[in-house]
């Protein structure tokens, strides 16, 4: 899946959704138990959109995000990244896809403890085609003065911002965030969300944020609610709140 092909295709046909999922189901077989995590889900994510995926634990939102991010494959249904069918891609194609097009942010940061903030970012820029400088990415998340610290020397919020910098440094088309503030307090959570907002505004990166925290939903362009493996609703947010106005 070559990136030049992707760009030329999208240029021809005008703005397509970045992701299109149609009739996606995911069934986990855990020993003798069958868990239907996704049931016939249709879903789109548009260019430049900041989308909040809201749902209780076990609603299937993480499963959907993992499938979009190429970490997992649906049991049935189709998923396209632009015009590329992720549901048919093999292991190597998914690796290339993750490497070039998508950035991840997790609840538990998942930084490499043996590398400094700068090096954690460099780890990704070293294998990317057109990355920004690690320093630039860290500056974007407000960590210009903490670049040579190791994860163990950073607070939770700082670690999460390093994770965001690491995710955006390769200039991905889409950023997938799974409970990015789940382990953080309100104030720190705000700083992290502000960093995400800035990425969305300045780099025009499409972002999907998973949360079970309904308050956060107000910062998105669109809010998709999930429950029991299905999409319950999808609402365009006419009045996007600034981070400072959010309370939880």
């Amino acid at each position: 899946m070559a990136s030049d092909q992707l760009t030329s295709d999208s240029a021809k046909k005008g703005p397509l959704p970045i992701f299109r999922a149609r009739g996606v189901s995911k069934i986990y077989e855990m020993g003798e138990v069958r868990v239907e995590a996704l049931k016939d889900v249709d879903f789109d994510l548009n260019e430049g959109e900041l989308l909040v995926l809201l749902g209780a634990s076990g609603s299937g939102k993480s499963t959907l995000l993992n499938i979009l991010g190429g970490l997992d494959r649906p049991t049935s249904g189709m998923v396209w990244y632009r015009e590329h069918d992720l549901s048919q891609a093999d292991e190597d194609e998914l690796t290339t896809y993750r490497r070039k097009h998508v950035g991840f942010v997790f609840q538990f940061y998942n930084l490499i403890p043996s590398l400094t903030a700068r090096e954690n970012v460099a780890l990704v820029t070293e294998i990317s085609d057109d990355p920004m400088a690690p320093e630039e990415a860290l500056d974007l998340v407000g960590l210009a003065d903490r670049m040579d610290h190791f994860p163990a020397q950073l607070s939770g919020g700082e670690q999460q911002r390093v994770a965001i910098a690491r995710a955006v440094a390769k200039r991905p088309n889409v950023l997938l965030c799974d409970e990015p503030t789940g382990a953080l307090d309100l104030e720190t959570g705000r700083i992290v969300l502000r960093a995400l907002e800035r990425v969305n505004n300045e780099l025009k990166t499409a972002i999907a944020v998973i949360t079970h925290n309904a308050a956060i939903a107000n910062m998105g362009d669109r809010v998709v609610r999930m429950g029991s493996g299905r999409i319950a609703s999808s609402d365009v947010n006419t009045h996007r709140l600034s981070i400072e106005e959010i309370e939880w």
């Binding site: 991010g69 690796t95 993750r98 490497r99 070039k100 991840f104 294998i127």
Partner: peptide, 8 residues
């Protein structure tokens, strides 16, 4: 994490 970041 590295695999997620696109390492083969």
């Amino acid at each position: 994490s590295l695999r997620v970041l696109g390492f083969s």
